[in-house]
Design a protein around this nucleic acid. Structure first.
Length: 564
RNA sequence: GCGCCAGUAGCUCAGUUGGAUUAGAGCAACGGACUUCUAAUCCGUAGGUCGCAGGUUCGAAUCCUGCCUGGCGUACCA
């Protein structure tokens, strides 16, 4: 990499200054104004205070010394500019060489090594099996899956995990809801009542639980139980047979939905195992030893006021049932004990309040939490016909993720969730997403890819560049050609940035720039019809551009079609 | 009240972790370009007191403080 080359050259020059602190870091960046060169450093500006000299003066000196060190085949110029920046220009030969490397690496181009030999765990989706996945779950799922991809691309050995709870109140109500509907299917003349649903009143059986699930899927499940088992399940428990039956169906649906957007997880972690193994009680005992847990009013409390909370937090209710925080802490202890170098949680903004409790709890038990990163994403606002749609699983007013995939397709769903940073609200206008899909940015990227494939096919047909055995990349001197290579050159760093910051939207943003660079090349530099020397070189560049787009889309989990 | 997140073009958002007289894309608007390798495209025009006010320094959309607005949270719900 030129960056490394520049870095060590500058470091060497700085070594001759005594006043430069040992921990001084040379910053190199790609200027956003291309007139300022290919790379730029602000080192002279930063050093001014240590050397007690004007930045420009320092820069001039540095440039003079650097010119002795630089190989002219790599760096063609180093100039002082502005307040004391040093701008470097890289020789075309470097870009040609890089192009050759992209073509060699092919589907591996962009993969990094920062995570080599390290293990990462990404936990995402983690929806309890009480109903179909909502659009909100979709953002979680796509974000988590793509972060896992990104970590994989930077070398980590990644495990994708789904944490769920199939016990507790929610699931009990689910079983009761199904049982109630089942009994009414067997006996339609049972008493009914009317309750308020998200989109108007709903008629349910008289014995339907107060907070019961009103979604149509509950009746579907009840119906299939009725048709499979007749009335033989009349006497079964809501919490036993009915809950289990519902869970099975719902989980299968969740997996199927995730599969539609290319998501398959490695591990399913059942919260119940934390009870079975007694790990939750280890947490209580451990914290109690630290004097941070006490009993009051029949409940077990965590002294969260010790670290800045307004109130202490209940870990175990007076009913003896733990709140979700307790298993959450135990779960994270379990993750840390499984010795991952990096543990990533994907949480919705509504979970933000629990994060400090959980991390603090784990830390107070003597574990290192520095490897845990929590990615918080803000909520998705669904907009239909210009109006926000309230989403509630229980009231069945959600738009399901399945519906969304039906409407706009898996690629658009993934891209929409990825094109923005996680911590901004996402307004998802369904009408727009559906009807305006032709101007959706994802198509722009895919179109560029398909277009390249089309050119490659056509070139093959007419034999463009076929008389040249080994393309002479040195023929690529047009500004559009060099710019395209420069754009491609950024890809590995973009992946690395996305990996270290856990911000996959950077890749989406980058791909747009890459596609623009290709389209500019496409508009300015013809391939077919040119003489074979130039045609073969441009074909090589087109292939490299295809690799960049295909690899980038692959990280995002979006298809790269050969034709559109 | 307190905590977290956000506030950048009419709309939706980027902004390389503090850099460069001129803050960028897309959509929408306006004006152009299809005997050409895919027009699902391209070129051009217009559009801004970066929520407001201070502060920090060579330099601020970016960091600090205070305010304003919106979202989320602040349960013996998850």
């Amino acid at each position: 990499m030129v960056k490394d080359y520049l870095n060590s050259a500058i470091a060497k020059v700085l070594g001759s200054y005594e006043a430069v602190p040992d921990d001084f870091v040379v910053e190199l960046e790609i200027p956003n104004n291309p007139e300022h060169g290919d790379w730029s450093t602000n080192a002279a500006l930063k050093l001014a205070r240590y050397l007690r000299k004007a930045p420009r003066e320092i820069a001039e000196e540095m440039v003079a010394r650097l010119s002795d060190v630089f190989s002219p085949e790599l760096i063609t110029s180093a100039d002082v500019a502005g307040a004391g920046f040093i701008n470097f220009r890289v020789a075309n030969a470097y870009w040609w060489q890089l192009l050759g490397r992209i073509l060699e690496l092919e589907s591996r181009y962009g993969r990094g090594s920062s995570g080599d030999g390290k293990k990462a765990l990404v936990e995402y989706v983690s929806a309890n099996p009480t109903g179909p996945l909502t659009v909100g779950h979709g953002r979680n799922a796509v974000l988590g899956d793509t972060i896992a991809n990104v970590l994989d691309w930077s070398g980590y050995d990644v495990t994708r995990e789904y944490y769920f709870n199939d016990a507790g109140r929610q699931m009990r109500v689910l079983g009761e809801s199904v049982r109630s509907q089942y009994l009414s299917i067997l006996n339609p003349s049972r008493e009914t009542k009317t309750v308020e649903g998200g989109s108007g009143d709903v008629v349910v059986p008289e014995d339907f639980p107060e907070d019961g699930y009103l979604g149509e899927y509950i009746i579907d499940i009840a119906r299939s139980i009725a048709s499979e088992h007749g009335d033989t399940k009349k006497a079964e428990d809501a919490e036993g047979f009915f809950k289990d039956a519902a869970e099975k169906v719902i989980f299968a649906d969740i997996e199927a939905t995730l599969g539609r957007i290319g998501i398959r997880q490695d591990e399913y972690f059942n919260e119940r195992t934390l009870y079975d193994t007694g790990k939750i009680w280890n947490v209580v005992d451990g914290l109690r030893k630290e004097g941070l847990v006490y009993d009051s009013e029949g409940a077990v409390w965590f002294k969260t006021t010790e670290f800045g909370k307004e109130k202490d937090t209940v870990l175990v209710k007076s009913s003896g049932e733990p709140t979700y925080r307790l298993p959450d802490i135990a779960y994270h202890v379990d993750k840390v004990e499984r010795s991952y170098d990096r543990i990533v949680d994907i949480f919705g903004a509504d979970h933000i309040a629990t994060v400090p409790d959980v991390l603090k709890g784990v830390e107070l038990l003597g574990y290192d939490v520095s490897g845990i990163d929590v990615v918080i994403y803000q909520f998705v606002t669904l907009v239909r016909s210009g109006k926000p749609v309230k989403m509630s699983t229980r009231k069945a007013t959600y738009e399901t993720l399945d519906d969304l995939i039906d409407e706009v397709g898996a690629d658009v769903v993934r891209f929409f969730f990825l094109m923005r940073s996680a911590n901004t609200h996402l307004e998802f206008d369904l009408d727009l997403a559906r009807e305006a899909s032709d101007k959706n940015p994802v198509f722009y990227l895919q179109y560029a890819h398909a277009r390249i494939c089309s050119i490659l096919r056509k070139a093959d047909e007419v034999g463009a560049g076929s008389t040249v055995a080994e393309p002479d990349l040195g023929q690529l001197v047009h500004a559009s050609e060099i710019n395209l290579i420069k754009s491609l050159a950024q890809f590995p760093a973009v992946v690395e940035d996305a990996s270290s910051s856990l911000e996959p939207h950077r890749i989406a943003t980058y791909l747009r720039e890459l596609a623009v660079a290709f389209t500019d090349f496409y508009g300015n530099c013809r391939i077919i019809g040119e003489e074979d020397g130039i045609a073969s070189a441009r074909l090589a560049l087109a292939r490299a551009a295809r690799i960049g787009l295909a690899n980038g889309l692959s990280v995002l989990g979006i298809s790269a079609p050969d034709r559109m």
